[in-house]
Write a protein that binds this DNA or RNA. Structure first.
Lengths: 142, 142
DNA sequence: GAGTTAATTGAAATTTAATCTCAATTTCAA
DNA sequence: TTGAAATTGAGATTAAATTTCAATTAACTC
């Protein structure tokens, strides 16, 4: 279970798996997809569990540090996260017209990035590759 | 001259090339590299020209809309911009600790992206590739 | 269990980049 | 010169995220 990974991560730091942390964890792992901290907070609130905004943010940061959650991007309206456990890393193509998102993965690109990091003595931790343009449907119409 | 492009962009919208806008423009195009809005504001202030923080931000947004300046990333401390006129496309590595930005360019990655777009019948227009991690200096300390 | 220590929590305050407000000023075409 | 429209700047506002700190909770020792 993923929660065991989190528990181990916490105890390795002398931290405890409290009810609030469990609540945040469960809400995040209850579904697959992107989420924003504020909506996460509201969902937890709706679910009946008590967890303050501060605790949600604090737990979220812990989950990122543990590697179970990834900060995907920063938008005008704040950060966007997704839980990564069991998900293979992927990148995105975004259609400028209909906002369709196509996921893709390229081993070759991944390797080239590693190579570039090595060359620059940079220790890459994560990356975002987003291609913007027109999807098949919308591209045909132009 | 790049400023002519800006002037045309402005007049196309019924906007004027004021002294403040010229000052922001000049400061940005006076050097090559990344910059943050706040530092830009301070530099303009130091240069003796009067331009309020609000005007600097407003002009910056106009420059982005005109295509002369690009918002390249968002850090914890805010947005980072660079002027793109006459610059070849490149991607970035961003240090999570010190926010240092390293530019890189890979023909191979560019080609792979084109290939992926073709495979997905996606017409790519632009892309952002950002690798986040630790630069040489900050990576050594962990 | 009781006592001790350290971690945790939540409400509110704070921080900070960026935007907005709006009265005063400037620009420019007629 | 005049008037409509754009622009400016000082300060207020916004909003995400973090911090503060007193009160609470958990875990450990005896």
């Amino acid at each position: 279970m993923e929660i065991e990974i989190f528990r181990k991560f916490l105890s390795g730091r002398g931290l405890k798996l409290t009810n609030q942390r469990v609540a945040v964890f469960n809400e995040i792992f209850a579904f697959h997809g992107h989420f924003e901290p504020e909506r996460l907070y509201l969902k937890i609130k709706d679910s009946g569990t008590r967890a303050s905004r501060a605790s949600v943010y604090r737990t979220l940061n812990l989950l990122v540090e543990s590697g179970l959650v990834e900060k995907i991007t920063r938008t005008e309206k704040g950060n966007v996260y997704e839980h990564t456990y069991g998900h293979r890393h992927h990148d995105h193509m975004v259609c400028e017209v209909c906002d369709e998102i196509i996921e893709f993965y390229s081993e070759k690109i991944e390797n080239l990035q590693d190579e570039i990091c090595r060359k620059n003595n940079f220790r890459g931790v994560s990356h975002t590759l987003e291609i913007r343009g027109y999807c098949e449907k919308c591209g045909r119409q132009r």
